[in-house]
Amino acid sequence: MYPKKIQLKYAICLALLVALFSSCAQKDKSTNEAAPEASIQEMTNYLTSLGFDKQKIVFEADRVIVESDIIMTLPELQQRTITWNKEKAGGPQTEQRRNTYIISNTYNNNVRIFIESSVPTAWRTAIQGAVNNWNAVNGTRLGMSIITSASGVYTRVFMGNAPGQSWIARAYLPTSNGRPGVSVEINAYFNTLSASQKLFAITHEFGHTIGFHHTNQTSGTHIPGTPTVDANSVMNSFVLNWAGFTSGDVLATQILYPQ
């Protein structure tokens, strides 16, 4: 039997240990709860630094949607944010120095596109036409092709259905490791668009998958030598009837993907 003083001493030590572990657990809990909010704030700061409107940034479970039709996965956005923070702190610069990633030479001469079976014929025609459009731009190494197997695919095209939403289609930007945007989603709500408008829309979305932002907005980095205003650019954020690339579209593609 321990003396009372020793028992009291152990009781005090035990109480202190319990309090310490409780405090640590509470601290860990608070840290874990605060992390997602801080992470989202940092990612938001990164996106607004590129010129995106904070009011047009929507975080979902595993991705973020900006300006209605530009998509990034959360892991990809987190990696971009980490790189951005390092660059702000004067750390090592990455190979990409423009804030907007483009496709590396490993992939850009044959961007393989797979079309899901659910995509209607009219949209398939537009997809083939969009591929032809980008392949016809002279003076670049950029090339696209449609493949019949999902094996080794770089960009997947599939149907979504968002009645009442303003987006006709939306696409992922290239990843930080130089791969094309992983997918283009078409809103079935706009199946009634004319063939010419469908062609414009898909050509536009493929533009996002290879690294272009909206011409008529301030996100991304202006490509030196190209117009700052280009009313008929395929990369404007509204859909027109297809009338071909503007000289600004062609020049921008030649600058990003020279032969």
Rank of each mutant, 00 (worst) to 15 (best):
N191T: 13
S166L: 00
E95P: 05
V137C: 06
G248R: 10
K27I: 11
W134Q: 09
P92I: 12
E185Y: 01
K4S: 12
E60N: 13
N85G: 07
A126L: 10
D69H: 09
L47R: 05
L8D: 07
T155V: 05
K88T: 11
L20P: 02
L193A: 08
D69G: 12
W167K: 00
G178P: 09
Q197R: 11
E42H: 11
W167V: 04
V182T: 08
A122G: 13
A162G: 07
L50P: 11
S183V: 02
F21G: 01
T48V: 14
I12V: 14
S166H: 01
T83R: 09
V153C: 01
G248A: 13
N241A: 15
V234G: 03
I255Y: 13
S194L: 10
T44R: 08
F59G: 13
I70K: 05
E76A: 10
W167D: 04
V250M: 09
I210S: 00
M159L: 04
E87I: 09
G139Q: 10
N241T: 15
G51W: 12
Q217H: 09
R98P: 11
N135P: 06
A38V: 14
Q41P: 03
G244Q: 14
W167P: 07
T48M: 04
V157E: 00
N45S: 15
A38G: 02
V157A: 00
T106Q: 14
E205L: 07
L256E: 10
T192M: 04
G207S: 07
R80G: 04
E76F: 06
H214C: 07
L16I: 14
L240Y: 06
R170E: 03
P120M: 14
G207W: 01
I115E: 06
T228C: 01
G178R: 11
T175W: 00
L199R: 02
P258D: 15
T121F: 11
H214P: 10
T125E: 13
R156C: 00
N232W: 12
L256A: 12
G225F: 06
Q217D: 12
T81R: 01
L173E: 03
T94C: 07
T203E: 04
V131W: 01
T106C: 07
A35I: 09
Y257S: 13
G152R: 02
S118T: 15
S117L: 08
M235H: 08
A201Q: 07
K9R: 04
V137Q: 02
N105H: 09
N99S: 15
W134M: 06
S104K: 10
T246W: 13
A11Q: 05
L193E: 13
S149I: 03
L74I: 15
Y257F: 15
G211E: 02
S145V: 05
V18K: 00
I255D: 10
V111Q: 06
T125R: 12
E87M: 06
K88R: 08
N85L: 14
L256G: 06
G91R: 08
S176E: 06
L50M: 14
G211W: 01
Q55P: 01
P163R: 00
V66S: 04
V157Y: 00
Q259S: 15
Q93S: 10
K56Q: 14
